[in-house]
Design a protein around this nucleic acid. Structure first.
Length: 516
DNA sequence: TAGTCGGGTGGCCCACAACG
DNA sequence: CGTTGTGGGCCACCCGACTA
């Protein structure tokens, strides 16, 4: 249901049209910590005349003078910008709204990857403590070479200030860090010092995003050893391959952000950055490796790579939704891997669940979804001396297509009848129309109301906004009208939308978007 | 001596290439 | 399109070395 109220001349897709004030949106990527490009179109607001300096005021009230520079047709924030990045702890993936106040003055709003405006008080509260405690220590460790093999990272932290000299380190020392070595063993992974995890409240259940020197983000999961040790496992292979790390490489891990559900660490290689030639030769012989342009992709690493996209939060939400599911029957949770929703036409049932509840058999199973519809699929098991496998194959393709399953969706298989292998399937889908709960809780009070979305091209769209206020969660989604809005504006995976609430009573929102 | 770390082994599990 | 089974990622566990 689209309501086009009026149409005005199209403006830049990065311009926000909420008011008569000029503004633009930038997503922090690449070498954002050195310079920031300003949309070239924005020059018109300076009457074609480039100001030598601009004054930028951050959300915490601090202002900084930043020089602007023109390079061909491009315009940049340059000298002074790196300091602004430091002061505001800006991170890769953040997006910033610059509001032009006239006379070369800008006001900036900063949004994290979660879509919520960042609370910068947390950063300004105790930075000096961290600088003292870690900046110099790390420098000492780096400068001193850190050759003592068994010296722990935490011990390195305790090296005194007296030893510190000023090295040229490619890191900002305002954040806690540790140094870890990727063990030479073929099956071991870099470990997180327990003291570090404890001291800085690292949530090792949710995983973390590692950011390499090129600004690329790599999601990595932790795994817990029974003796309490924590290692980086899932996803580590990708970052080591992407950065051509050899076993034995020494890396500095610096905790940049640890807001709930958004933990980010910078990774800097201190040694061992050259890939081990024997490892490489070995890998080159494996048939699953292939090169795509300049980007190296390793087929067997796909488990992690597929999560490396902007919709990771949506996938995480689907998983969380699934985790809250309770049943009196045995339940098996399966996250839709690309293989499951791709051409393979089958899905693996976790062996443990299959062994315990389904058993060895080869028969048709019944999948029933909430609206009562039923699909018949083939279930079979196979086992050898070294493996046990249970698969749903025959008929899975139809089930997958009929239910529009996508990568990242979570299916809960509830075994209601063991003899006839009847399973109720609950599908928790990855939906891009989710409103961040913090925002919803603060601004969306009514159970259902129509939001009016205004795009930069001055078109208006009515979209139903439904609020779910459960005992455990408060969330909102855009429903009726969203699909049209999405299709008409040609949103693709990875695009970023900024929703600015300009009319609380009538839920009027200006929408700016940044394309991938 | 307890706690922590690096290094290593073995086996489970599953993605996906190969095949029917 | 459906099935098979292998390669290797992931994980639990063990051991010895080192340190406070």
């Amino acid at each position: 249901m689209r309501r086009r109220l009026r149409s005005i001349t199209t403006t830049s897709t990065t311009a926000i049209s909420s008011s008569n004030k000029a503004s633009f949106v930038m997503v922090l990527m690449g070498d954002f910590d050195e310079k920031l490009q300003v949309p070239t179109d924005f020059l018109k607001h300076f009457n074609g005349k480039l100001p030598g300096k601009s004054t930028v005021r951050g959300p915490n009230g601090r202002t900084r003078t930043i020089k602007m520079k023109r390079d061909g047709d491009d315009l940049y924030f340059f000298k002074g910008w790196p300091e602004f990045v430091d002061e505001h702890s800006l991170e890769f993936g953040d997006f910033l709204i610059f509001e032009y106040k006239g006379s070369s003055k800008f006001k900036v709003k900063i949004y994290g990857q979660t879509g919520i405006e960042k609370d910068l008080r947390a950063y300004s509260a105790e930075p000096s403590l961290e600088v003292k405690e870690h900046g110099t220590d790390e420098e000492a460790a780096y400068e001193g070479g850190y050759h003592v093999q068994r010296k722990s990272a935490m011990e390195v932290e305790r090296i005194g200030r007296s030893r510190a000299r000023k090295p040229a380190l490619p890191i900002n020392t305002n954040h806690p860090y540790f140094i870890s070595t990727w063990p030479k063993s073929t099956t071991c992974y870099p470990r997180i010092p327990r003291d570090f995890a404890r001291k800085y409240g690292l949530n090792t259940e949710t995983g973390i995003v590692l950011r390499d020197h090129d600004g690329r983000s790599w999601p990595v999961k932790f795994s817990h050893n029974k003796d309490g040790r924590i290692s980086m496992t899932k996803g580590w292979r990708q970052i080591s391959a992407g950065n051509k790390l050899a076993r034995g490489a020494k890396c500095l891990f610096q905790l940049i952000s640890q807001t709930k559900g958004n933990q980010i660490m910078n990774v800097r290689v201190l040694g061992g950055a050259e890939i081990d030639k024997r490892d490489w030769a070995l890998q080159s012989n494996r048939k699953r490796i292939h090169h795509l342009g300049s980007k190296l992709e390793v087929g067997s690493f796909k488990r992690g790579i597929t999560m490396d996209c902007v919709t990771a939060s949506a996938k995480e939400r689907a998983i969380k939704e699934a985790n809250g599911f309770q049943s009196k029957y045995p339940v098996c949770k399966i996250i839709m891997h690309p293989t499951y929703v791709g051409k393979w036409g089958a899905v693996n049932i976790p062996a443990q669940f299959a062994k315990t509840y389904l058993g060895d058999r080869n028969q048709m199973a019944i999948l029933r979804i909430s609206d009562g519809r039923v699909w018949h699929v083939g279930y079979r098991t196979s086992s050898s001396s070294s493996s046990y496998m249970a698969i749903i194959s025959k008929g899975w393709n139809k089930f997958k297509v009929d239910n529009q399953l996508k990568e990242g969706d979570v299916c809960l298989f509830e075994l209601v009848d063991r003899d006839n292998l009847e399973m109720h399937v609950t599908i928790c889908q990855v939906t891009p129309n989710h409103v961040p709960s913090k925002f919803a809780k603060q601004f969306l009070k009514r159970q259902s109301q129509t939001a009016t979305l205004r795009t930069p091209d001055r078109n208006f769209w009515d979209v139903e906004c439904v609020v779910y206020n459960g005992s455990a969660k408060y969330e909102a989604t855009f429903r009726k009208g969203w699909k049209e809005f999405r299709l008409h504006n040609d949103f693709k995976e990875g695009d970023i939308c900024v929703f600015e609430l300009v009319d609380r009573d009538n839920l009027g929102m200006d929408v700016a978007f940044s394309r991938v």
